[in-house]
Amino acid sequence: MCLRCNKLYAYILVIFSGAGCLISAQDIQEYKYNHGLHELNLLVGLGFHSERDQMMTPMKYSGTLIPLRLAYEYLGTQNRFGIVFNFSSGNMESAISNVLPGAHEANNFNMDASFSWAVHITDIEKYNSALFGGARLASMLNFRNYRLLIDKKQTSAELMTGIGLYFRSETFLTHDCTHNLIAEISLPLINYAVLTRRFNANVSEKFDNLDYKENMLMQLFANGDIVLPDKLFLIKAELTYFFRLSQFFRINVVYGFQYYYFNQYKSLYRAKDINQQILWGIVVDL
């Protein structure tokens, strides 16, 4: 594992222990500042998407996507409830994209929606942090059109809806609550997923009875499987920094990281996907 990844684990530990958020202990109740608050958050930014879909190609495809996010959150006395819609789209290239102009490229479209709910677990008074735990229900589509030749497209997509664990820590970085930091992590434990690779190979039992005159993606979604983390492993983590501008407005910066992999075709091939986003947004406190 690379040196940077070792550091990464250290950072995660720091953030979730609250050690990075040290202020005086008497401020621990400050998180209640958010009681009964509804907030809307609109964000745009940059996404960095990398994928190695071995069923499609041995090469890694990467590209910059343009994400757009709309989020709503309710910050209750002892709970948190959030809804997030996220879209991103862009092109991906591989190390061989320069061999033939217009070939060895992929269009990528991502869409996800999540509903999270968490209750207050504990405070870490020493670090002025509050920890919440609960569940997240999330649906995701990762759709790709590979052009391995200029005029030939091969479609690949994952559709998955999963429910699993969700944790978040909220930390006030300053006494006046101008700066605060939220770290979130979710880990689906069970997914309903469509993990087909190509419409015309190795998955025909998923396609034979479909009405090809209609939207195939929606029909395929009805033909998914229940899969556990041994088949599909996904982890999603986010760090959000908030800065208060006024009583009703804040700005925020989000770094999001999502990684998943799954086995396919009798475990011969594996698809791995990393989607990272840096988003800037404005929060309206209602």
Partner: peptide, 30 residues
Amino acid sequence: MNTRSKIILYILTVLTFAGCAETFLGPDPE
């Protein structure tokens, strides 16, 4: 740790994740 240090830590964390794509996906075949 002051506020500036915490923000720097945040940025470092982001950069660390951003550099790890190859670690997660593995290298391209030779």
